[in-house]
Design a protein around this nucleic acid. Sequence first.
DNA 1: CCACATACATACAGTCCTGAATGTATGGAC
DNA 2: GTCCATACATTCAGGACTGTATGTATGTGG
Lengths: 212, 212
Amino acid sequence: MENKVKTRRTQEERSASMRQRLLDATIECLVTYGYAGTTTTKVADLAGVTRGAQVHHFPTKADLVTAAVRHLAMKRADFAFTQLDRLRAADDLIGVGLDLLWEAHQGPIFTATVELWVASRADEELRRQVSTVESLAASSFAEFDRELFPGFAGHPKVRHFVYTAMDTIRGILLSGFVITDADVIAQRWRRARAHLRQLAQQLFDELTAEQA
Amino acid sequence: MENKVKTRRTQEERSASMRQRLLDATIECLVTYGYAGTTTTKVADLAGVTRGAQVHHFPTKADLVTAAVRHLAMKRADFAFTQLDRLRAADDLIGVGLDLLWEAHQGPIFTATVELWVASRADEELRRQVSTVESLAASSFAEFDRELFPGFAGHPKVRHFVYTAMDTIRGILLSGFVITDADVIAQRWRRARAHLRQLAQQLFDELTAEQA
DNA sequence: CCACATACATACAGTCCTGAATGTATGGAC
DNA sequence: GTCCATACATTCAGGACTGTATGTATGTGG
């Protein structure tokens, strides 16, 4: 039987999976306790390992958080990427596109991201890290507007519209940090979505006319 | 000379001014160090008093922060109120209205507010405080849409538009936590402002037509 | 002017967090 | 199988923060 209970793993495997667990635990910690409540102790606890293991892979807290920032950015990019396929298959591009943008900002991933954004304001070192990573994440969203209005790929006006849409979504989500009633937030989004849709439709018409 | 160096003050005066100083210091601390870095020690330091004085007026940290939340909400309401006069005097209501809404979200007051919003997500007690105070603050902004389209005061569609506008603004500001380049943010606002203006104009036309 | 309340200061105890030091186990090269 | 590197565990020292206890000064009513 080579399928023993204790599988023999290579050092690299152990290392990688441990780092993964620690980073996931860091995200979880950010979501559960906020940045202020995210300590190396709690992270190790959540990951189910001792602080020794944690310290071995990420010597300082800054190392841990920095790595978590990158880890999180990759998760966001991954998620955006999977959604692109759904977008390509949609018939109502604008409507589906807006909804996908909304969904991309749901869940723990974005929550953790906001915690880092806000924390980075008062922490120069953290801000540098977040800033550089954010540039990369932004480019993954750039794919989005390339798909949204095929034929007008990369058109500045389309890009600006996507920015406005994202900003609106994030503003609503920020309110959601205080307003726990999901219905209220959903309502807010439905209204905003109507507004954005109206803008998108007009933009589409405008671009089409321009092209003719 | 009754204008001595050491003016004799009543207890109530001393108490009130001290509380004021402590609360202002708390706001300053939030802005400078973020919520995570806001400690009773630093607040007392910034206020230029000992921790004993601080503790006398606000026995626990929760008491201090809670009071700061209210203090901040009042400052926001005050500010919104002063802007209403400017709005009433404007000829280009929509344009000026949008700019005022933007300006209302500049400066340390809003920064501190966001710190509290985000922190409140993971802190049940704090969230309750922020939540109740926020309802009051919201009503001061409700004044805003009453002035924005005179004649359509309190119309749901107007209110929803103001919400969307505020959410967009806050989303941009959130980006500003990471992006320190003020020009980039200003640019983002100019684009979004154009979008919002377009919506507002159409809404105005629609309501006017409805009324006729 | 005296007794008391309130405002503020100083000192300390308990907790939590970070990082370092040191010890043990496991995997890989030879 | 031996030796070394890497993975992980345990323990401790130093620092920061909160809250409490106790002392001093400054007003305030009788």
